[in-house]
Amino acid sequence: MADAFAAYPDLRHPFEERPIHGSGHTTVLYQGKTICLTETGTGDGLLIRPSDLQQVNGFELKPEGACFEAMCIPLNDQLLVQQDGQEWFNLTAFADLLEQPYVADVDSRVWSFAEIPAKRSNLLADGLAPDFEVTDRNGNVVCLADLKGKKALIVTWSSW
């Protein structure tokens, strides 16, 4: 077999075990990005600072609700929560409302969110390419908008 089909058992333990984030911090995963939050609320669900929402999932808080492009989700007291005089955005309640699945390892304070189904409706119905964002090996961010006016072949591969 060629090297490309070889195993990489040495990569099974690439590093010494180390913490994912600093003490008291929380990590959110979404669309391949890792976001560290230094402050979250307590209790059930994941309560984040409203000012962190946009960096977490691109939604912006506006008078009409939490908005992403043409989509606006009206806010209510399930989403905006008061706790000890501080306002929090309930990210897990928001995900439930959008039917966005997630998997959490609460002990480690890590929440991993799947894609929001509504964001894929154009792909499934009309064959329009989904938005994506990846960083190339030169550190450049590549997204769907960069391909406008060009033909693109996007191909996946792996050494395995």
């Binding site: 990489y8 033909k151 693109a152």
Partner: peptide, 20 residues
């Protein structure tokens, strides 16, 4: 006007895919 994006899905990351 043609773009080719090649995405390596190696969990081993750059250490594995980079040399290839």
């Amino acid at each position: 006007d043609f773009v080719l994006i090649s995405a390596a899905q190696d969990t081993g990351g750059e250490a594995v895919a980079g040399p290839i």
